[in-house]
Design a protein around this nucleic acid. Structure first.
Length: 456
RNA sequence: GGAUAGGUGGCAGAGUGGUUAUGCGUGGGACUGCAGAUCCCAUCUAUUAGGGUUCGAAUCCCUACCUAUCCUCCA
């Protein structure tokens, strides 16, 4: 399959190896607060990518880090009078609940940074001994001048970073572009022991320590939001390659676009964050997935209520189709029945994970089956159910509604009674039964001489 | 100022030289006792502006204007 590699800045063949584990790492959140729709966009995309790669016969290990110690978490712990560890644990639990609500089930391991202190200290020590890092009075810094390729991923040259710089000067640093890898302990902050003094890790080195301990110095896929390209992913590359001497850190770099609100990025200061937990009050996880997967993964999404409402319609349509297929009676079959729908979706996904194209193909499939629903044979019906099942497994943009049509003698007999009323043209009584069923949460639909029902 | 994406109908959003996708919306029709779902047809005189290349440009080139993201908090 083809994928746009952020480092090479072109669409290239993603040649993975079926004979060994495919290693994918995606930058997870700092567990300081609830996650917003922008996080969801990124994690839903990589969830689909992971599912798809696996469906193609690869054994993929999907690793995600969790930043569970940082300035914002510490700030929050002070505000609430509880430990930073408690803040992090609480938000991590919330995070995992939300992931499961939006159908993200592909992550093999969540690596909390604070559980990898040995590996972090070890990386700091190796960088120091190789001359890639140095001590100051407030911490240990990575020496950016020792890694000339810094800036390649984000298209920034070291020089241009000087002219556009808007960072506060720090006289402790040799060069203000240097970044911290170990922060020495400050009063009232959590700290860990280390040979270079009590303190806590800098952000960038957490991820390299985690990936090195799971995958070694190189791995296959590194993903994350495009806002992490600079400086975070640049720093990861600089750290790990300085340590390993390898030509690369990850073979493929994949970045998702931002989700904007009214044309602006979500941020705390603008107060425009849309939290997933709030959306889940009105929309299902699969509807949220539909809304986000309808755009190409690299494009900026301008979030709106309309977008979700439209996705909800799309999603419901597919759920309805699945329900009908499960309940309808087979017909004689139609000639020249069109197949190849899964292959068509695969073509889209093989071309830079075009989920939007795959959804369009799925909608066409939906129209086609709906048009022929009363005529398709048992085999054709099973094929159609397979297509939907496959789409559900990979994209997760609608629901399979397992409750519908299962045998329930009370409901069935009420429907039989209603249909005999209808035959006698006693529509008043028939409508009353329908009303009663609806009060009990049972929806029915007359299709020719059969009646389909489901529970919402 | 630098880097990177873009600017397409009422809205969202494809399309890298030659029948103007697709979804939502809107109008009409079919089906139905009704409802629901679905299907069909139509509709919205759409390509930021100005030049250029070409038989032909949304697509390639130039200029201008505009927008977003990044340039050490960030998914």
């Amino acid at each position: 399959m083809m994928i746009t590699d952020s480092l090479r800045k072109e669409k290239i063949e993603m040649n993975l190896d079926r004979n060994r584990v495919v290693r994918m790492f995606v930058c997870g959140p700092t567990v300081q607060d609830k996650i917003h729709i922008g996080h969801a966009r990124t994690y839903i995309f990589f969830d689909v990518l992971a599912r798809y790669i696996r469906s193609r016969g690869y054994d993929l290990f999907y690793l995600q880090n969790i930043t569970d110690v940082d300035d914002r978490i510490i700030k929050k712990s002070r505000e609430e009078g509880i430990s930073a560890e408690e803040v992090a644990s609480r938000n991590l639990n919330l995070y995992r609940e939300i992931l499961s609500s939006i159908g993200i089930n592909s992550i093999n391991f969540f690596a909390r940074a604070t559980l990898f202190m040995d590996e972090i200290r070890d990386q700091v020590a190796r960088l120091l001994s190789k001359g890639h890092a140095y001590r100051t009075s407030d911490g240990i810094y990575f020496r950016i001048s020792s890694f000339p390729e810094f800036g390649r991923l984000s298209g920034q040259s070291l020089e241009s970073l000087i002219s556009g710089a808007r960072i506060a000067p720090n006289e402790n640093k040799e060069d203000y572009r240097d970044f911290v890898i170990w922060k020495l302990r400050k009063e009232g902050e959590p700290f860990w022991e280390s040979p270079f003094g009590q303190g806590r890790p800098g952000w960038h080195i957490e991820d390299t320590a985690i990936t090195e301990s799971f995958f070694g110095p190189t791995y296959d896929i590194h993903g994350g939001g495009s806002d992490l390209q600079f400086p975070h992913h640049e720093a990861e590359i600089a750290i790990e390659r300085s340590i390993s001497g390898e030509e690369y850190l990850a073979r493929f770099w994949i970045h998702t676009g931002m989700v904007n609100i009214r044309n602006e990025k979500m941020s705390k200061s603008l107060g425009n964050s849309v939290y997933v937990s709030d959306l889940l009050k009105s929309y299902s996880g699969s509807e949220i997935r539909m809304a986000l997967l309808k755009s190409g993964y690299r494009s900026t999404i301008n979030f709106s209520q309309d977008m979700l409402d439209e996705a909800k319609l799309n999603s419901t349509g597919l759920t309805t189709l699945f329900r009908k297929l499960k309940n309808s009676k087979p017909g004689k079959g139609i000639d020249n029945f069109r197949t190849g729908w899964i292959e068509r979706m695969q073509e889209f996904l093989d071309d830079d994970m075009d989920t939007r194209g795959a959804i369009i193909a799925l909608n066409e499939f939906s129209s086609y089956i709906n048009s022929n629903l009363d005529n398709i044979s048992q085999d054709q019906r099973e094929y159609a159910i397979n297509v939907l099942q496959w789409s559900y497994d990979i994209l997760g943009i609608f629901d399979l509604n397992p409750d519908s049509g299962s045998s329930n003698s009370l409901i069935e007999s009420m429907i039989d009674l209603r249909n005999s009323m209808r035959k006698k043209k006693d529509f008043h009584s028939a409508d009353m039964i329908r009303e009663k069923l609806r009060e009990g949460g049972v929806y029915i639909e007359d299709r020719g001489d059969t009646t389909v029902w489901w529970i919402e």
